[in-house]
């Protein structure tokens, strides 16, 4: 499917802001075009279902999270048309969630492979995935303090847990 068709498909179905970032890649200057669609939360799941219409087994890469101050932006990176020469496209669905209501529907029922990524975002930034059954820690230790999120840029960041080794280096110099 062409990039334009995906963009039009997303635009006609949902109220969203679509950006196509293109870049001539490599020595043959093959154009790599990444689609970023910034959607409303209520449309997100339908948009994933729409991507399934394009690609039977949608390839899910990962969820990125960006702290925008009052909001947390989640970026779901998908790829479509994989397995074909020069055809693969990255489609990123972005959803902004207000920090006082960090909730979004889980997509693990559509894509079982998204389990680890949802568990990671749950523990790193504190997003609640509705429908995600397994919410145990995956990358953080089991005794990690509750309500502390290392990838957020606000008061929930565990400042006191930083291992400030440079302080000891300074101390070492003074002793000498």
């Amino acid at each position: 499917m062409k990039v334009e068709d995906i963009v039009n498909g997303l635009k006609s179905r949902f109220e969203c802001d679509v950006k196509v970032q293109s870049r001539a890649c490599g020595t043959k200057k093959i154009e790599k075009r990444d689609i970023y669609a910034r959607l409303r939360r209520e449309d997100f799941r339908k948009a994933v279902e729409y991507l399934f219409e394009i690609q039977e087994y949608l390839h899910f890469s990962v969820i990125s999270a960006t702290d925008l101050g009052n909001d947390m932006e989640l970026l779901y990176h998908f790829t479509v048309d994989y397995g074909k020469r020069n055809e693969e496209k990255v489609v990123t669905l972005c959803v902004s969630l207000p920090k006082d209501d960090l909730k979004i529907e889980s997509i693990t029922d559509l894509i079982p492979g998204a389990l680890i990524s949802e568990r990671e975002i749950h523990e790193m930034v504190g997003v609640e995935f509705i429908g995600l059954k397994d919410t145990r820690h995956f990358f953080l230790p089991e005794d990690w303090p509750e309500g502390k999120y290392p990838w957020r840029r606000d008061e929930t960041f565990p400042e006191d847990m930083l291992n400030k080794l440079y302080e000891t280096w300074k101390g070492g110099d003074e002793n000498e």
Binding site: P141, P150, P158, L162, N163, K164, L165, Y166
Partner: peptide
């Protein structure tokens, strides 16, 4: 030996 590139991380207790 010293924490190296990972010093200051929240998940380290080392070196």
């Amino acid at each position: 030996v010293s924490g190296g590139v990972f010093h200051e991380s929240y998940n380290l207790v080392g070196p």
